[in-house]
């Protein structure tokens, strides 16, 4: 088991390095740089000399290899540098938003798990009954509906119902408060975007749970369990679900990593200052350092989630553990 974990951990190093190279190169293939965007980005006259000085200050005139070396050295010394656009330390810029995005991602995943696994299971057990049809329609709707639209509907719904019930409309707060200071206020803010994204996310997982469970329920060992006279509940929980969870766990892992950086539009709808927004801004301003570190953050989370999924696999399926 420990060998397995160590092997997986070592395998992450080349992945991270490859990603770092790729982002670095791709960013520099885009025409222009942060200095041009800042000084000439509005179509007005810009002094070429000023742009040149700006480039010199930010080290954009150094040879590419030197710049790359600096980035790599930064990783080794755990120094992520400063944003080319704001001049603030990147750690602070990201840290500010990471907590919010992480919270939403975790909450959305919880929402998705709580919806997907029970619904998928019921749907499989009651295959081709009205319950199954309702669940399938519900999950198809989740896939078909963009989460930002659902977000708008949620906000409207909240406004209208609170208005009708209490006389004053209420909507989720916009200013971020830490869950450690004001848990309820924090929850009021992140819960609704988590539902809006979690629903869509659960739809994919519900369908996956349903189809793998249907497959597993046809396996010989489920028949054996039935022939042993076990309760249907035990057959599903102990014998079938554990076998059916492998592909579902994969989906959760991938979706979670996606949620960290990919909630651009939903963040806009709920007016949240999250990583998605920062991502878009840093790409538009050609902020090389910020984009580099943001992409690396998402890569690290992807790699970490995959690692976690691998561990879960090993826990779920003993054949992998010793394989």
């Amino acid at each position: 088991m420990y060998n397995y974990i160590i092997k997986r951990l070592i395998l992450t190093i080349p992945t991270l390095f490859g990603a770092a190279v790729l982002v670095f190169v791709l960013m520099r293939l885009v025409p222009g740089d942060v200095c041009e965007v800042r000084m000439a980005g509005f179509g007005t006259f810009a002094d070429p000399e000023a742009i040149e000085i700006c480039r010199e200050n930010l080290g954009l005139n150094d040879p590419v290899l030197v710049q790359f070396g600096q980035v790599m050295w930064g990783y080794l010394t755990l120094d992520l540098g400063v944003s080319m656009w704001t001049g603030q330390p990147i750690v602070d810029e990201i840290g500010l938003r990471f907590q919010l995005s992480l919270e939403i991602a975790i909450l959305a995943t919880l929402v998705a798990i709580l919806i997907a696994i029970p619904l998928g299971t019921i749907s499989a057990i009651k295959q081709d009954t009205w319950i199954d049809y309702v669940v399938r329609a519900f999950s198809i709707a989740g896939i078909a509906m963009p989460s930002f639209w659902l977000g708008i509907m949620i906000i409207l719904g909240l406004l209208i119902t609170t208005q009708a019930l209490f006389g004053t409309p209420w909507m989720p707060p916009i200013v971020y408060v830490s869950p450690f200071e004001d848990p309820l206020g924090n929850l009021a803010q992140v819960f609704w975007p988590a539902v809006a994204t979690g629903y869509r996310y659960s739809a994919v997982a519900t369908r996956m749970t349903r189809s793998t469970l249907l497959e597993v329920l046809r396996e010989d060992y489920v028949r054996t369990a039935r022939a042993k006279g076990l309760l249907e509940k035990i057959i599903i929980n102990r014998h079938a679900l554990k076998n059916a969870m492998l592909p579902v766990v994969t989906i959760f892992g991938i979706e979670f990593a996606f949620l960290i950086g990919g909630l651009v539009v939903t963040e806009q709808v709920f007016n949240l200052n999250g990583l998605g927004k920062l991502f878009v801004e840093s790409v538009l301003t050609l902020d090389f350092t910020m984009t580099q570190q943001l992409v690396m953050l998402v890569v690290v989370i992807f790699v970490f989630m995959n690692f976690l999924v691998d561990l879960l696999y090993a826990w779920l399926d003993p054949r992998i553990r010793y394989g």
Binding site: E219, D220, Y221, R223, T224, A225, A227, K228, R238, H239, K242, N243, L316, D317, P318, R319
Partner: peptide
């Protein structure tokens, strides 16, 4: 009680 044909698939692989 029943004994099935395929001992390879009749036992649950994860238990």
């Amino acid at each position: 009680a029943m004994v099935f044909q395929e001992p390879m698939t009749s036992l649950n692989p994860v238990l």
